[in-house]
Simulated scan of single mutants.
Amino acid sequence: MDSFSFLTTTDDARIAYRLDGGDDKPTIVLSNSIGTTLRMWDGQISALTRHYRVLRYDARGHGASSVPAGPYPLARLGHDVLELMNALDLERAHFLGLSLGGIVGQWLGVHAPDRIDRLVLSNTAPWLGPATRWDAPIAAVLQADDMMATAETFLRNWFPKQMLEATDPLVDKFRAMLVTTNRHGLAGSWGAVQEADMRGLLVRIVRPTLVIAGEHDTVTAASYSVQMAQAIPGARLLVLPAVHLSNIEFPERFNDEVVRFLRAPT
């Protein structure tokens, strides 16, 4: 599983990526949330590779990718995707992003619509409050002795109580991702969230878009998804009874809905 290829970006970051599925199929790019790696999509690969070649990558500052000095501008995260696509001779691709990956997807939909076929924005938001609200979390993670407390906070925000109390192996998998995330990568990525305000730009997204919300999401509340689906012309809204990681809590429904959307007639 842990075999990667690497791209060196124009600003000398090293981005780890992986391709699954036949190269005769259209490509979908998967973009992960803060504090995770491309393995957050393991539960989607079997379903997606029936129809698509799947390009996953570790966002800068995460997993096997390098950890440049932050903060990471949102445009830089978007250009990481475009440079990956360029290196792989992908003129266009579908894009599925969750949380921060969904913010990157919004940026791509606005600024690079000619590179995107269909867009899936899961458990994300166009804006997550005033920039100053992120100052304290960024300072705290940089000053902490380790990532343990940060990891537990994330897990409480990502999973329902019953999964946390049952010592679910999926929770353990994400705990392992979080505690091994470089704090500077996490803080740098929060910088992108801190600057993100796509609210006035969503109307410029012209690609077919599916917005997926978690009914019980306390990180990117479902109300944000409703606003996004109303603002993006022709967007479709799907609300799952999930917290923040809809693809983990309800993988079969998530996979079915994504594939149905991507394969629907235009």
Rank of each mutant, 00 (worst) to 15 (best):
S5G: 10
Y17G: 04
R18G: 05
G21S: 06
G22E: 14
D24C: 01
K25N: 03
P26W: 07
L30S: 00
L30D: 00
L30W: 00
N32K: 00
T36I: 04
L38I: 03
L38E: 04
R39Y: 11
M40K: 05
Q44A: 03
L48W: 15
H51N: 12
L55Y: 04
R60W: 00
G61F: 01
G61A: 04
H62N: 05
G63F: 03
P68Q: 03
G70A: 09
P71E: 09
P71W: 05
L74W: 04
A75Y: 11
A75C: 09
R76L: 02
G78D: 01
H79A: 04
E83T: 10
A87S: 15
F95D: 03
L96A: 02
G97V: 07
L98P: 01
Q106S: 09
L108F: 11
H111K: 10
P113S: 06
P113K: 09
D114M: 08
I116M: 11
I116W: 07
D117A: 05
V120T: 10
N123A: 11
N123V: 08
T124K: 09
P126H: 12
G129Q: 07
T132W: 11
R133Q: 15
A136V: 13
D146H: 11
D146F: 07
D146S: 13
E152W: 14
R156Q: 14
W158P: 02
K161R: 13
L164V: 02
E165H: 08
E165F: 06
V171C: 08
V171K: 07
F174G: 02
R175W: 12
V179Q: 12
T181K: 02
R183N: 09
G185Y: 02
L186A: 13
L186T: 08
W190L: 15
W190Q: 09
G191M: 02
V203I: 04
V206N: 11
L210W: 07
V211T: 02
V211F: 03
I212D: 08
E215F: 08
V219Y: 01
T220P: 05
A222Q: 12
S225Q: 11
V226E: 15
V226L: 12
V226S: 12
M228S: 10
A231T: 12
I232C: 04
R236W: 06
L237I: 08
V239F: 03
V239L: 06
H244L: 11
N247K: 06
I248K: 03
F250Q: 12
E252A: 15
R253M: 11
R253T: 13
N255H: 09
N255V: 13
E257Q: 14
E257H: 13
F261V: 07
R263W: 03
P265N: 13
T266Y: 12
T266F: 11
